[in-house]
Amino acid sequence: MNNVWFITGSSRGLGRSLTEAVLAQGGRVAATARRPEQLADLVAQYGSQVLPLALDVTDHAQIAAAVAAAVAHFGRLDVVVNNAGFGITGAAEAYTEEQVRSQLETNLYAPIAVTRAVLPYLRRQGSGHILQISSIGGRVGNAGVSIYQAAKFGLSGFSEALAKEVASLGIRVTAVEPGGFRTDWAGASMAYAPTIDGYELVNQRAEYFASGNFVPLGDPAKAAQAMIDLVQHPHPPVHLVLGSEAAAFLRQADADRRAEFEQWLPVTLSTDHDEAENFFATEVGKLYQVKPQNQQAAE
């Protein structure tokens, strides 16, 4: 593997595991971090394979400079990984304005900004793969992480739309949506809103994370290898869920959403204009009809 990777938040957590795995397999990495000196051991081991770059992902000028430096150094970018981010736990009304702003700036606005910065280079190349490190929390909502998940839902939605927008340009986009992995997400990287009485479930979750007793199921080294394999695949998914816990959450959420949708479908359909033809009866709408599973199997 000789791809050039651009990885944000590469000094710790999943970003560090991915950076190490890519370098170990012969890839080249523009490794960004707020403190690039934390990457000194990788520079000592891998030399010119790795380019450490200082980057605060909330600083748009730094983003542009880091992307330009990476292209100038390596000549191209093949895989861009928006990994930098952090979690926060608390009740929605309890977060400070700064906490809300920081979450959205780091976990949503920043990956959008990095994506927009790299797209001109990838478009001119006619190739590239953008991996957005979202979360199963970008597909399934849970009490206590509403602001974090607002950012991740936004990132997964942005990625899905972007994938359709740039497919004809030879650029692929995947929202990677992990469950809990054994990084410092729930440890040193976790922030907390002030506690408010009455939110028992939220407060219990915050206490659990802060206790250090939360041991996730996911292995970051295996997640890193899954992403390396992913970029070699000729038909990568737009969404890649990682971890059995995440798979269980998503399967249940999809079933719940489907049941709720069907229950309220009469109300949904009742709001068309009287003079409008039901969309499902149109030629385009017929493409959106879902066949029963037994009919699909028969075909």
Rank of each mutant, 00 (worst) to 15 (best):
G75Y: 05
D78L: 04
V79H: 15
V79Q: 11
V80S: 00
V80T: 03
V80Q: 00
V80R: 01
V81C: 01
V81E: 00
V81Q: 02
N82W: 03
N83Q: 06
N83G: 08
G85M: 05
G87K: 14
G87E: 05
T89I: 09
T89R: 07
G90V: 04
G90L: 11
A91K: 00
A92N: 15
A92C: 12
A92P: 10
E93Q: 09
E93I: 12
Y95I: 07
T96S: 13
T96Y: 13
T96C: 04
E97R: 15
Q99N: 07
V100Y: 13
V100H: 12
R101W: 10
R101F: 09
S102I: 14
S102K: 10
S102A: 13
Q103D: 03
Q103E: 06
Q103G: 01
T106H: 01
T106P: 02
T106R: 00
L108Q: 06
L108C: 05
Y109M: 13
Y109S: 09
A110S: 00
P111G: 06
I112D: 00
I112W: 00
A113N: 02
A113V: 12
A113C: 05
A113W: 02
T115H: 00
V118M: 13
V118P: 05
Y121M: 14
L122V: 02
L122S: 00
R123M: 12
R124H: 15
R124W: 14
Q125F: 14
Q125I: 13
G126E: 09
H129Q: 11
L131R: 14
Q132P: 02
Q132L: 08
Q132R: 06
I133T: 04
I133Q: 06
S134I: 01
S134C: 03
S134Q: 03
I136A: 08
G137A: 05
G137E: 11
G137W: 15
G138Q: 10
G138H: 02
G138R: 08
G138D: 09
G141K: 10
N142H: 13
A143G: 13
A143Y: 04
V145L: 15
I147Y: 14
I147F: 04
I147T: 14
Y148H: 14
Y148S: 08
Q149D: 13
Q149W: 07
Q149N: 11
F153S: 03
G154M: 05
G154A: 12
L155S: 06
S156Y: 03
S156T: 04
G157E: 02
F158V: 04
F158E: 02
F158K: 02
F158C: 03
S159G: 07
E160G: 12
A161G: 07
A161K: 06
L162Q: 07
K164S: 07
V166A: 08
V166M: 06
V166F: 08
V166Q: 01
V166W: 05
A167L: 07
A167D: 11
A167W: 10
S168L: 07
S168K: 13
L169D: 07
G170H: 09
I171K: 05
I171H: 10
V173S: 12
T174S: 02
V176M: 10
V176C: 08
E177T: 03
G179Q: 13
G180K: 09
F181N: 10
